[in-house]
Design a protein around this nucleic acid. Structure first.
Length: 669
RNA sequence: GCGCCCAUAGCUCAGCUGGAUAGAGCAUCGGAUUUCUAAUCCGACGGUCAGUGGUUCGAAUCCACUUGGGCGUACCA
C-alpha cells in the first residue's frame, strides 16, 4: 500500500511549533512571535530540537528565564512525540524525539512516494523571470547564474505546490538588434549565413560592435590620455602635499592620506581605461581588413542606431529581417536549455511588450510622475539622484518602459502574486527604481523581488574571462567541463578493483551528467549574493562538497540494489517498517524526514544553497550509514528490509533534490 | 561626490528572523580496504568572525563610526 503525503503529519517542525504555541498561549498574548524560536538543535548533543523563547520572554512575563522555561515545559504536551523536555543553560528547552515516534514517522515518510511533502495550503502565483539572454549574442558565463538559480527556484516553488510560471524575458528588440541588421545589410557572408545563421549573426554583431567601439574610442583616446595625465599629476601633487606635511612635523594626516589613495585609484582606473582603449584600437588597426572596413563605415554606431529606430517604427524591410532572424536565434537558445533540462513556460521578449509602451507612458503621465530632463522623459524617485528614464531624448523607449509594461501584464493579465527577477546584483539600482515606480503606479499588492546574485570571478579575482580577455561562452564552458569529467570518469572506472564496468556510451553519458552537474552545483552551493571564483578543478574534484559526491551516493544505493538483485518496486510496495537502532540509521532517517523543511527554507529567501547544503548533509549521513550498516549481508531479515527501505528513501530524496536543482544522476558511475 | 555590497581557518566558502564551545570542503597530519562502488569513512591540527564603540539575558549576525576591497552612478540591457 502506498501512503500519500496527506495521510501523515508531514512537517515535524510545524507540528512541534503547534504544540509549543498551545503551551505559550497562557503565558503570553503573542505566542506567534515566539513559536518560530523552536528549531532543529544547533548541536545534536542537546537533542533534536530546541526552543529558545524563554529568554526573550523575560521582560514581558517578568520572571527569570529558567522559571519561564519551566512554565512552558509544564504546559507543553509533547509526550507522544518526545522524551520529557529538559531545560539547559540560561533557559533553553531541549527536545529529543522518542525513538518510537521517530521510527513510526520515518516509516510512514519512507513509504510515502511524495516524500512527506504536502502542497502549501495557500498557493501563490509566481512569475520567475530568469536567464534573459540577448538574442544578438551567444550566451556567456554571465548568464549561467541567472539560468541555474532561476531554474532551481522555479522547480522548488512548484514542488511546494505554488502556481509558478517561468518567463524568459529575451532581449530581442534593443540596440543590439540594430547592429545585427546593419551588419547583415553591409557585411554578411551569404554562405556562412546559409549554413549557420545564428553563428553568422553573432559574428556580425561582434563585428559591428567592434567597429563602432573603434570609432567611439578613436577620437576619445586623446581625452582619455589627457585624463590619465591629469590623474597622474593629481597623484603627484597629493603625494608631495603629504610629504611636505610629514616633513613639517605632522604625524598623521588622514585627509591627505585619503587624498593620495583616491588619486591612486583614479589613476589606476584611468590607466585601465587607456589600456583597454588602446587594445581595442590596435585590434582594428593591426588588421588591414578590419581597418579597411572601419574606414569605410565611419558613422557605423549612428547608422546602427538608425536601423533600430527604423525597426521600432515599423520599417517593412527591418521588420522582415527581424522576423527572419528571430526563430533561428530562439532555436539556438533551445539547444542550450535542453542541456539544462530547462523548458520555459513563456518567452515573452522585449518585443512582445512594444505595443504596450505608449500606454505605459500615458499612465505615468496621468499619475503625474513624468519629468522632462535633458530632453528625456524621466521618473524621479526621492532619494535617488539618477532618473528612471522611460523615454530617451530621441523618442525611443527604454528597458525601463518595457519592464513597467511587463509588470502591468504580469499583474493584470497573469494575476501574479509575486514576481521574481533573477538578475545580477549590479542592476539593483534599476530594480529599486522600477519597483518604486511600479508602486507609485498602484502595484502595491504584488511582491516584487530582485533575486540578486554576485559575479563569477576567475582565479585572479577579476570577472571570469578567457586568457585573451574575452567573455567565456556558456556552451564552451559546458563542453570543457564535460571533457574534463570524461577523464575523471575514465580514470575512476579503469581504477575499479573489480575492473572497468562502463562501456563507451555509458562513460560519455556519465561524463555529461557529472560535468554539467558540477557546474550547476558549484554555482548553487554558494550563497547567491556573494561573488565566487570559478574553478573547474574544484567543481569537478573527486572529493569534497561537489555534485559528484551526491551523485556517487546515489550510484552506491543502486549498486546495492543491483548487486543484491533487489527489485525497487517491491521495496516500495512492501510497506517495510524501519528499525533505527543504529546511530547512523537514526541520523539518516531524521535527515531524510527534513526534506520538506529544506524546500520550505529555500522558498523563504529564494536561496537554493539551502537545498545544496541539505543534500550534502544527506549524502554525508548516507555515506556514514553505508560504512556502518551492511545491507545485503545483514542476516536479520527485518533489519535488512529496513535498511533496503532506508536506501531507497535516500535515493529518492537525493534524486528528487538534485532534480529540483537541475542536476541529473547516474545509476552507475 | 552620492549610493549599494563585502571583510569569518593557510585556501574556497557556509552560518537561517540575534542563541549554548563559530562550521564545512580543500590542504596538512594520523587511522580504516579479503569493499553492498575508497569518487568513501573516522580522527587531529587550524579562527582576536577587519577594528572600535553601542543595543541586550546573549552579537559573526542589529546600530554607529574607522580601515581595507568591490560594484553602480542619465538616455546599453
Amino acid at each position: 500500500m502506498i501512503i500519500t503525503g496527506s495521510d501523515i503529519a508531514v512537517n515535524l517542525l510545524q507540528l512541534l511549533r503547534q504544540r509549543l504555541n498551545d503551551a505559550l498561549v497562557p503565558l503570553t498574548p503573542e505566542p506567534e512571535t515566539y513559536v518560530d524560536m523552536l528549531r532543529p538543535a544547533g548541536d545534536t548533543k542537546f537533542g533534536d530540537f530546541q526552543a529558545n523563547c524563554a529568554m526573550p520572554m523575560q521582560k514581558s512575563v517578568g520572571k527569570p528565564a529558567r522559571e519561564i522555561a519551566q512554565l512552558i515545559v509544564d504546559g507543553l504536551k509533547v509526550d507522544d512525540i518526545c522524551e520529557p523536555p529538559s531545560i539547559a543553560g540560561p533557559g533553553f528547552i531541549n527536545l529529543k524525539l522518542k525513538e518510537s515516534w521517530l521510527t513510526e514517522a520515518a516509516t510512514r515518510s519512507a513509504n510515502d512516494m511524495a516524500l512527506g511533502i504536502d502542497p502549501v495550503s495557500k498557493p501563490r502565483k509566481f512569475i520567475v523571470d530568469f536567464s534573459s539572454p540577448n538574442v544578438a549574442k551567444p550566451m556567456h558565463v554571465g548568464h549561467l547564474r541567472s539560468t541555474v538559480i532561476g531554474h532551481a527556484l522555479y522547480r522548488v516553488l512548484k514542488r511546494l505546490g505554488h502556481h509558478v510560471l517561468s518567463d524568459n524575458h529575451i532581449g530581442d528588440w534593443g540596440t543590439q538588434f540594430g547592429m545585427i541588421i546593419y551588419g547583415y545589410k553591409n557585411f554578411r557572408d551569404e554562405a556562412r549565413f546559409a549554413e549557420k545563421p545564428v553563428a553568422e549573426l553573432a559574428r556580425l554583431y561582434r563585428l559591428v560592435n567592434q567597429l563602432s567601439d573603434y570609432h567611439t574610442l578613436k577620437p576619445a583616446l586623446p581625452g582619455l590620455i589627457e585624463a590619465q595625465k591629469c590623474a597622474a599629476a593629481s597623484l603627484a601633487q597629493a603625494q608631495s602635499q603629504l610629504a611636505s606635511a610629514v616633513a613639517s612635523g605632522v604625524k598623521k594626516s588622514p585627509e591627505l592620506q585619503q587624498l593620495v589613495k583616491k588619486a591612486e585609484s583614479d589613476l589606476k582606473a584611468a590607466n585601465e581605461e587607456v589600456e583597454s582603449a588602446r587594445k581595442k584600437l590596435a585590434a582594428v588597426e593591426g588588421d588591414s581588413d578590419l581597418f579597411d572596413l572601419a574606414s569605410r563605415h565611419p558613422k557605423i554606431a549612428e547608422d546602427a542606431r538608425l536601423e533600430t529606430a527604423k525597426l521600432h517604427a515599423g520599417d517593412a524591410e527591418n521588420l522582415a529581417l527581424w522576423n527572419q532572424f528571430l526563430p533561428d536565434c530562439l532555436q539556438a537558445l533551445e539547444g542550450l536549455y535542453e542541456r539544462f533540462g530547462l523548458k520555459f513556460d513563456m518567452a515573452l521578449g522585449e518585443s512582445w511588450y512594444n505595443p504596450m509602451l505608449p500606454g505605459v507612458l500615458e499612465r505615468l503621465e496621468q499619475a503625474g510622475l513624468l519629468t522632462k530632463s535633458q530632453g528625456a522623459q524621466c521618473v524621479f524617485i526621492g532619494g535617488n539622484e539618477a532618473p528612471f528614464i522611460v523615454r530617451k531624448s530621441d523618442g525611443a523607449f527604454t528597458y525601463a518602459t518595457t519592464d513597467l509594461a511587463t509588470i502591468q501584464h504580469r499583474v493584470e493579465s497573469l494575476k501574479a502574486d509575486a514576481i521574481l527577477y533573477v538578475v545580477d546584483s549590479r542592476q539593483s539600482e534599476h530594480f529599486d527604481l522600477l519597483f518604486a515606480t511600479a508602486k507609485k503606479l498602484g502595484y502595491r499588492d504584488v511582491e516584487l523581488q530582485h533575486v540578486k546574485f554576485g559575479t563569477i570571478l576567475g582565479e585572479d579575482k577579476r570577472p571570469f574571462k578567457t586568457r585573451s580577455g574575452d567573455t567565456v561562452g556558456l556552451e564552451s564552458l559546458i563542453d570543457e567541463a564535460i571533457v574534463r569529467a570524461r577523464e575523471i570518469v575514465n580514470a575512476g572506472d579503469d581504477g575499479k578493483p573489480t575492473g572497468a564496468e562502463l562501456d563507451e556510451e555509458t562513460r560519455q553519458a556519465v561524463a555529461e551528467i557529472v560535468g554539467l552537474g558540477g557546474i550547476i552545483y558549484a554555482d548553487l552551493h554558494h550563497s547567491r549574493e556573494s561573488d565566487y571564483s570559478f574553478s573547474f578543478e574544484k567543481m569537478l574534484a573527486t572529493k569534497g562538497d561537489t555534485a559528484t559526491y551526491m551523485q556517487y551516493a546515489y550510484a552506491r544505493v543502486n549498486g546495492i540494489f543491483r548487486k543484491g538483485g533487489v527489485n525497487v518496486a517491491d521495496i516500495r510496495s512492501a510497506g517495510h517498517a524501519l528499525n533505527l537502532a543504529q546511530p547512523a540509521e537514526r541520523m539518516l532517517a531524521l535527515q531524510l524526514l527534513r526534506f520538506g523543511e529544506a524546500l520550505q527554507d529555500v522558498a523563504v529567501d529564494y536561496r537554493p544553497n539551502v537545498l545544496t547544503q541539505y543534500l550534502f548533509e544527506t549524502a554525508n549521513r548516507f555515506s556514514a550509514f553505508f560504512e556502518a550498516c551492511p545491507v545485503l549481508k545483514e542476516s536479520d531479515e527485518s533489519i535488512r528490509h529496513s535498511r533496503l527501505l532506508l536506501c531507497d528513501w535516500t535515493a529518492r530524496v537525493m534524486k528528487e533534490g538534485l532534480d529540483l536543482l537541475g542536476i541529473r544522476v547516474a545509476e552507475k558511475m
